[in-house]
Design a protein around this nucleic acid. Sequence first.
DNA 1: ACGGTATGCCAACACCTGTTGACTCCCCGA
DNA 2: TCGGGGAGTCAACAGGTGTTGGCATACCGT
Lengths: 208, 208
Amino acid sequence: MTAGVPQEQGTESAAGPGRPRRSDATRAAILRAAQARFAADGYDRATIRAIAADARIDPSMVMRYYGSKEGLFAAAAEFDLCLPDLSGVPAERLGEALVGHFLSRWEGDDTLPALLRTASTNPGAAERVREIFTGQLAGAVARLVDDPTQALRRAGLVASQLLGVALTRYVLRLPPVVDMSPADLHAWLAPTVQRYLRAQDATSPGRS
Amino acid sequence: MTAGVPQEQGTESAAGPGRPRRSDATRAAILRAAQARFAADGYDRATIRAIAADARIDPSMVMRYYGSKEGLFAAAAEFDLCLPDLSGVPAERLGEALVGHFLSRWEGDDTLPALLRTASTNPGAAERVREIFTGQLAGAVARLVDDPTQALRRAGLVASQLLGVALTRYVLRLPPVVDMSPADLHAWLAPTVQRYLRAQDATSPGRS
DNA sequence: ACGGTATGCCAACACCTGTTGACTCCCCGA
DNA sequence: TCGGGGAGTCAACAGGTGTTGGCATACCGT
């Protein structure tokens, strides 16, 4: 009777640490390979076989530990904007603070490219991006903005500029955007974000 | 002898009008279906079979008329920014003019979403986007900007904002960005683009 | 009226995908 | 020491992909 409970280890990937399992190294290797492949190729082109080969492991292990390709992606695309507490920042420097945070958060972590590449074609991932936006960015912006009815719109504008940079710099790799230093990027983007956050309204959105 | 020259009609899709062929309607139907599918699903998920079904035609016809899936995409993603002549526009209204043009160009034509969705995963399409950027946008911006060494950078910044809007509005469909009217969008974006085009440099990029 | 040719469909190919189940081996606890 | 379950491999499945060649048909110039 080899049937019945298979091996009772399958799906509890993110359910508290428990005690360390012997396979944790393998799990981590799979996750690392998956993040790299998803970031480089997007969801469809990143095959489980390729990820398994990168992790020097059999494709079936991926299924055993993460259940399915979607499950693997969900685990690999766990993404936290890690927004800092901005309550101590003076109102006229919010743009600077936000832009600086995002640039340092994204340089050297390619989860965001993975998410963007995948969200472009995978409705589930797009929904995930919308959740991140609503739950993390829009929430933080609401705390910074006076008129709550305008908060969502302001957050959307900020997202359009910041995600636009992520798209052109990390995904499309437009040469001028790739070549700019983080400092230059910061100097150009901060006033834009500052205006989206604080300008009184669209009919007088600051002078050029 | 059915061999030899097959039917001598294959690959000359974009080689001058010639005289109209009887199959032009079919070709157009395929192209229309392809644009819709590529826009909605991206390159990988848009299957030739699905496109053919939409066009009420056999998949093999697609191959006959467009050679391969890549050839079909190349024909479907022919994209012209249709940049107008901006030489008559006063320098302080260039942002307005550019933003207004892009908004009216994109609303109601979903070639750009198709291109973005595909360029996220397909290196060839990403290269195409870079070409469009360099050949169309950067060229136009260079004509508007005084210091030619800064022109590319300015064009890159403009692209980051405009493509960011396209991404969040048409691809990711972030609700606040989707809900904004073109007029509101225009009022918010024009000053940003204006600053990217004309502000003296990054160390004094305009006040908030 | 006829013959060639452009047009279209059908069936199949070779390949690759995610996913599954059975099998071996080794480590760890009792 | 020994047994059980975790870790890992292998081979296969079923379905979908781009792509190809052969065959019927309707059109058009002569």
